[in-house]
């Protein structure tokens, strides 16, 4: 039998990045017949705490990445038990580093966190030409596009992507968030982006806000 304490313990172990405890707890909960979706819910709650601790500067990127690894391993264990249950995606997000830039650290951390929070992500990779952004939005119907760049020389390409979406008649159906060390809220406004994410957690909060997910901080 399981009770609330077990669920809380799993969330806490996830938040404290106790990989061994998360692994043991999942084994026990599955053995006790707890619905896999409930376990995923507990893990996601733990990830919320990880995000909060990151924003409070208790955790750094290293902890975010480690949390992602623990979560992914946990999901690999839970997934075969899902049977007919459907862990519905909270929404689709298209992500990519714009043409002229091959930096992908920030983008990859946003993707990892988005996936941990239940979003489906189409990762276009790095050095992405504007046409691929347009095609991905066209084909996926995603409501959110995330663009990243580190180099100052690549920043103008973000505006070109927005123009290309406009030209393709897609601008009204997609919201655009930008991020990267040299980007800023001011720059985002200048080029017509809808959101600027200062860090990966803000990126996830933007996605939650847009897809009306509860618990947006």
């Amino acid at each position: 039998m399981t009770d609330n304490q077990d669920h809380n313990q799993l969330s806490r172990s996830m938040a404290e990045l106790d990989e061994g405890s998360v692994d043991r707890m999942i084994g026990r909960l599955l053995l006790d017949g707890v619905a896999p979706l409930e376990i995923i819910h507990d893990l996601t709650a733990g990830m919320e705490d990880v995000s909060r601790l990151y924003q409070e500067e208790e955790y750094a990127l290293g902890e975010l990445i480690y949390a992602g690894v623990i979560f992914k391993n946990a999901m690999n264990r839970i997934r075969p038990c899902l049977k007919n249950e459907n862990a519905e995606s909270r929404g689709i997000v298209v992500m990519g580093t714009v043409k002229g830039d091959i930096h992908d650290l920030g983008k990859n951390i946003v993707i990892m966190l988005l996936e941990c929070h239940g979003f489906g992500v189409i990762d276009l990779g790095v050095d992405v030409p504007r046409e691929r952004f347009v095609n991905a939005i066209q084909q996926s119907g995603a409501k959110l596009l995330g663009m990243s760049a580190l180099l100052t020389t690549a920043l103008p390409e973000m505006q070109e992507v927005i123009r290309a979406l406009d030209h393709a008649g897609l601008r009204d159906q997609v919201r655009i968030m930008i991020g990267g060390a040299t980007a800023s809220g001011k720059f985002g406004k200048e080029i017509g982006a809808d959101f600027y994410g200062r860090d990966a957690v803000e990126g996830v909060n933007i996605a939650k806000h847009l897809y009306h997910v509860e618990g947006v901080s």
Binding site: E57, Y59, A60, L61, G62, E63
Partner: peptide, 9 residues
């Protein structure tokens, strides 16, 4: 830097 690593590390 503190962006990447925790105080402990």
């Amino acid at each position: 830097s503190p962006v990447f690593v925790s105080t402990k590390h």
